[in-house]
Design a protein around this nucleic acid. Structure first.
Length: 665
DNA sequence: AAACTTTTAAACAGGG
DNA sequence: GCCCTGTTTAAAAGTT
């Protein structure tokens, strides 16, 4: 007999999450309603005999008029979404003006002429164009590379394999770097505020504007955008050293993000913020310099204010980048950037390894990237603090904070955790409202499996997931353990701790039902109970995005971030590998689905053995690896070993089944 | 600020 | 006695 002494904890329906939705990357307080400019529109034609001054004036007037038109268009476009796509030529005029006006009219003049909103609109228009052009440029580059690759492949068929492999890899590398570059730029732009474009506003001009930028403009633009990061340089300098399987492809982030564990004691990921961006990192290491100061200018994202010396810079830093909403928002964005890069790094490293293994370049190491990633995670189970991810972000962006956070820092593992400790935040966020655990897991299966990163889910949801993944929807305790260790590198350590937590959760939550079996006891999930404990209330995407931004941890970030980006109508997202179009839109779906229906909840339909939503749990069949009966015998161990090394095969299947969305291949 | 949730730690008991 | 499983309690931290 068994006494099911269920500790009836109060299960009052939790309060609803209201969508606050203060988008972090909205660096600007908005506000500013300024009166509209009332200057008389220019009339008349430019005379051939215009003086330079007159010409300038005329151009100003024209720009002004155009700007006004644009604003008008935008106003109407915003109010009538349908009209977005059909824009008259009037909008197209601004393009050229928008692109050239800066040269004809000084920014100051523009500022005087235009009201803030107008300026902003114009700016956005320009940015949109820039983005589009960049995208074009990237596309072409990639096509070229692909072409080259193809050519090489064909040529290679008639040639010995050795050189071919190298060339292929080289091109792959190039491609990869290309994509990373692209993403980097994207992020950079975002960081500098471009992304703060209102979705509506951003799209309108974007879709309607012709591509009127000449290549040279583009190059210039490119330069400007890239000026803040070393990517190109590092690519050139490091060449294609395929022997260092870990860092080459992503050297720009890997090299700089991973080792500096030591200075991650900096708050808010600030160090991470600058490190990957500058080729001047060598300077920054100098004592007496400031990580955000280099080349005589402030390297705060989007700032670039010139400062003569460090003192002045510090002053500038304290005044311009003090702790306020804007700085915080920028920090957030930067964090995302870093996180995204880290995740990307993990994926790309893995891919690289697979490629090299395939090409017999060298014996594949189990998990090459776990090292750099450790930084992300190695937060060992040093207790609650360690695992959290920067979410709530920074407390004070003062360097004093970071060290404080570790409240009960467990053993050693110093810094790595501090990086994440930035904000003592829980990890359940993403699970709660954003990505459903299953899709999150599906998408980042590999990641969690190999990276020592704590999954952003509660024990309860993980346990449930484990159980639901099996055909019979039931697992013994030991099998649950095994699932944890199999699925998450993170749970291969500190077993006593998390196992205790698992047991605790099993006992504590009513949703887990212990069923006496012939062989012992198994645990099942009472979906109804499970759903009861989570409020179905979901607000719209603002909340989603917000939560993504704040709550996204580790892998979740990937999906979430992409979704967020997609939401902001980012054209560059169409990059093939990073986020292919379908996946980008897919992400959106994922997100929205979650919001509206919370896939997990759908499963709770009354029927007894619900076949669960196909999208979600169709795959358990494949999870055969887990012999529902052979308990703790020999199996688990070998399984683990297997999965750890051949990380690829089974997972891909899972992935394919789980989601149409895949960003990892 | 209070209530609630989650995590972690730990004590304890029963069974093999 | 040891280990595993399972239940409880408590405290801390984070969320709503």
């Amino acid at each position: 007999m068994m006494v099911e002494s269920a500790s009836e904890t109060i299960r009052s329906t939790p309060s609803s999450q209201n969508g606050v939705g203060s988008l972090a990357n909205q660096p600007d307080g908005g506000g500013g309603g300024g009166g509209g400019g009332r200057e008389g529109a220019a009339s008349g034609e430019p005379n051939g005999e215009m003086s330079p001054v007159e010409l300038l004036h005329f151009q100003q007037q024209q720009a002004l008029q155009v700007a006004r038109q644009f604003l008008l268009q935008q106003a109407t476009g915003l109010s009538s979404p349908g009209g977005n796509d059909a824009k008259q030529p009037a909008v197209q005029v601004p393009v050229s003006v928008a692109m050239m006006s800066p040269q004809m009219i000084t920014p100051q003049q523009m500022q005087q002429i235009l009201s803030p909103p107008q300026l902003q609109a114009l700016l956005q228009q320009q940015q949109a164009i820039m983005l589009q052009q960049l995208q074009e440029y990237y596309k072409k580059q990639q096509e070229q590379l692909h072409l080259q690759l193809l050519t090489q492949q064909q040529a290679g068929k008639q040639q010995p394999k050795e050189p071919l492999g190298n060339k292929q890899l080289a091109f792959q590398q190039q491609l990869l770097q290309m994509q990373q570059l692209q993403q980097q730029h994207l992020l950079n732009l975002q960081r500098q505020g471009l992304v703060s474009l209102q979705p509506g506003q951003g799209t309108v001009p974007l879709q309607t504007l012709p591509q009127a930028v000449c290549p040279s403009d583009l190059q210039q633009l490119w330069k400007e955008v890239t000026a803040t990061q070393p990517v190109e340089d590092s690519i050139k300098q490091e060449g294609l050293d395929l022997t260092t399987n870990t860092s080459n492809s992503t050297s720009f982030s890997a090299a700089k993000v991973s080792p500096p564990i030591s200075h991650h004691s900096l708050p808010n990921g600030q160090s991470a913020m600058h490190t990957p961006r500058r080729d001047s990192s060598s300077h920054e290491d100098n004592p007496g310099s400031h990580p955000l100061y280099g080349h005589g200018e402030c390297k705060w994202p989007g700032c670039e204010t010139l400062c003569e010396d460090l003192g002045q810079f510090v002053k500038h830093l304290n005044t311009e980048h003090a702790l306020d909403d804007r700085s915080t928002a920028q920090c957030r964005v930067q964090m995302q950037v870093v996180q995204q890069l880290e995740i990307q790094l993990a994926k790309e490293s893995e891919r690289l390894q697979a490629m090299m293994a395939h090409l017999h370049m060298r014996p594949s190491e189990p998990k090459p990237f776990s090292q750099p990633l450790n930084l992300v995670s190695s937060a060992t189970l040093s207790k609650s603090t360690s695992d959290t991810f920067p979410d709530g972000l920074p407390h004070p962006p003062t360097s004093a904070t970071a060290p404080i956070t570790p409240l009960r820092q467990g053993p050693s593992v110093i810094s790595s955790s501090t990086l994440h400790n930035v904000g003592p935040i829980r990890r359940r966020n993403s699970e709660k409202f954003c990505t459903p655990i299953s899709s999150e897991l599906a998408q980042n299966h590999e990641f969690y499996k190999n990276a020592d990163v704590r999954p952003p889910f509660t024990y309860a949801s993980l346990i449930r997931q484990a159980i639901l993944e099996t055909p019979d929807r039931q697992l013994t305790l030991n099998e649950i353990y095994n699932w944890f260790t199999r699925m998450f590198a993170y749970f291969r350590r500190n077993t006593a701790t998390w196992k205790n937590a698992v047991r605790h959760n099993l006992s504590l939550h009513k949703c887990f039902v212990r069923v006496e079996n012939v062989k012992g006891a198994v645990w099942t999930v009472d979906e109804h109970e499970y759903q009861k404990r989570r409020p179905p209330k979901m607000t719209g995407s603002p909340t989603l995005v917000k939560n993504m931004i704040s709550g996204l941890g580790y892998g979740a970030l990937n999906a979430s971030y992409q979704a967020a980006l997609a939401e902001s109508n980012f054209p560059l997202l169409n990059s093939p590998t990073m986020i292919n179009t379908s996946s980008a839109s897919g992400m959106l779906h994922v997100g929205h689905d979650d919001v509206s229906s919370t896939v997990e909840q759908v499963n709770s339909n009354g029927s007894n053995s619900p076949r669960l939503s196909p999208q979600q749990y169709s795959h358990p069949v494949h999870v055969k690896e887990e012999p529902a009966e052979a308990e703790d015998d020999s199996r688990p161990v070998s399984l683990m070993a297997t999965t750890n090394q051949n990380v690829t095969i089974p997972d891909d299947r899972d992935l394919e089944e789980e989601l149409p969305v895949e960003d990892l291949s």
